[in-house]
Design a protein around this nucleic acid. Sequence first.
DNA 1: ATCCCTTTGTGAACCGATGCACAAAGTAGG
DNA 2: CCTACTTTGTGCATCGGTTCACAAAGGGAT
Lengths: 225, 225
Amino acid sequence: MKSPSHPRDRGIPEATVARLPLYLRALHGMAERGIATVSSEDLATAAGVNSAKLRKDLSHLGSYGTRGVGYDVEYLVYQISRELGLTQDWAVAIVGVGNLGRALANYGGFVSRGFHVAAMFDADPDVVGDTIAGLNVEHIDALEAVIKRRGVSIVVLATPAAAAQEVCDRVVAAGVTSILNFAPVVLSVPGSVDVRKVDLSIELQILAFHEQRKAGGPLMAVDTQ
Amino acid sequence: MKSPSHPRDRGIPEATVARLPLYLRALHGMAERGIATVSSEDLATAAGVNSAKLRKDLSHLGSYGTRGVGYDVEYLVYQISRELGLTQDWAVAIVGVGNLGRALANYGGFVSRGFHVAAMFDADPDVVGDTIAGLNVEHIDALEAVIKRRGVSIVVLATPAAAAQEVCDRVVAAGVTSILNFAPVVLSVPGSVDVRKVDLSIELQILAFHEQRKAGGPLMAVDTQ
DNA sequence: ATCCCTTTGTGAACCGATGCACAAAGTAGG
DNA sequence: CCTACTTTGTGCATCGGTTCACAAAGGGAT
Ligand SMILES: NC(=O)c1ccc[n+]([C@@H]2O[C@H](COP(=O)([O-])OP(=O)(O)OC[C@H]3O[C@@H](n4cnc5c(N)ncnc54)[C@H](O)[C@@H]3O)[C@@H](O)[C@H]2O)c1
Ligand SMILES: NC(=O)c1ccc[n+]([C@@H]2O[C@H](COP(=O)([O-])OP(=O)(O)OC[C@H]3O[C@@H](n4cnc5c(N)ncnc54)[C@H](O)[C@@H]3O)[C@@H](O)[C@H]2O)c1
């Protein structure tokens, strides 16, 4: 760090942010196996990326490596966790407790680090009042009140597609600015709200596209003309 | 089409492929509502993208629009479906019938167009033999035989992380070249195999990153030095 | 203290994707 | 047939991201 430029620039590329969780997961595995330091080469392999990319990604957080040695695993875990905001525990709410919502609620894995399910909501009277993974399912009418009271800042949307936009609007109105959407609809939200989507059917269609190419590829030089 | 270049170039950009399912979904909705033609502007809005991007995407498939009018909805549905390989019905197998595997199996939505669940596998004797969504759960030992017999070409992996790579190897050995992975591991596969991953915890971490920025952003100009 | 070896951090070239802006192509109406 | 209007398809500038390749930095040995 000589003179100009920022040592740790605020403004990490989006592509880098999307990979940090991958590095973090690999590092956790290494820490558990008692590995103290790791080279960019080894960490990159474990995370399934190329080592130049990994080094550039980490360089956006700061100069946390030691030349000739590598990165201290514990220290890097801490730095990435801090950067991702995982040093605090985020309260997540699940809206729509059907097939998928239940699976998510029962999923131990994502409670692991940095997140916990703080509330669950449904509109169906048969479902409201059920206890799932030790938590009571609230009625959707209580959405605003419960979100405020329990400090929910991330909402997982697992309602049918038809209800998603309406529920989304209420969630946003309640002050939530981060949404993970499983319903197959394009949600319309204010610019200040982040929506990420998980869409099974899109993923399958992309796979089908490539599968078709593989099948027909080499032989299928048949032009339509 | 004057002289050089391909009218319909094989080699559609990956980013375009990932959006085609979005357009298709919007078009299906319009077809159901009886809309016969649609402009790039309207279709783009429905799909949540910008219209120049949509037109460029569609131009990779061919010149299917009419200037001054727009695109014929039915025709475009057919062309995109064909391009994505949805004019055939793909046999999908689900491996790992736990919380998530069950939710996926019971999910009607993805059977809808172009895909059907042709087999389900698990290693747990208590689960094998169960009937879920009208289909018998097979033992994982029968993987290779059943995959061949039923012509499975896409596998959805929903086993615990620890088992994922081993199952993946068997699936690949059985000739499958398209995998949708829900387990939080980096799968290692030959280059000819396509793997797409769905990772809840990565999505949440990305949301947490941005949420943290929003919270501390404007005020948090505190430098660590 | 010097030399050799390893590995980081980054400048620079490259590549694919995005979005603007407009000519070309079509419709509709007189 | 000609004019006015609409909307596509694309050339081009730009941007963000990836990859290469190497100078600089540090550790360890002698
Ligand atoms: N199940 C899957 O594997 C899967 C996969 C991909 C996508 N999805 C999508 O995820 C969503 C949920 O899928 P599912 O299989 O769990 O459906 P589901 O029908 O089993 O569950 C939906 C739940 O949402 C509740 N609900 C309906 N309207 C509501 C409202 N206004 N407010 C609150 N709750 C409401 C229903 O009572 C029901 O319990 C759907 O949009 C589906 O397309 C599911
Ligand atoms: N449940 C969720 O919401 C969720 C969300 C994100 C990711 N995931 C991931 O999806 C995977 C499945 O999650 P889950 O909650 O359904 O777990 P689960 O434990 O409920 O189910 C896993 C199933 O896989 C079976 N299995 C184990 N080893 C197997 C093998 N070698 N061959 C075949 N089957 C085998 C088990 O018998 C079990 O039925 C996990 O990797 C989890 O991390 C789950």
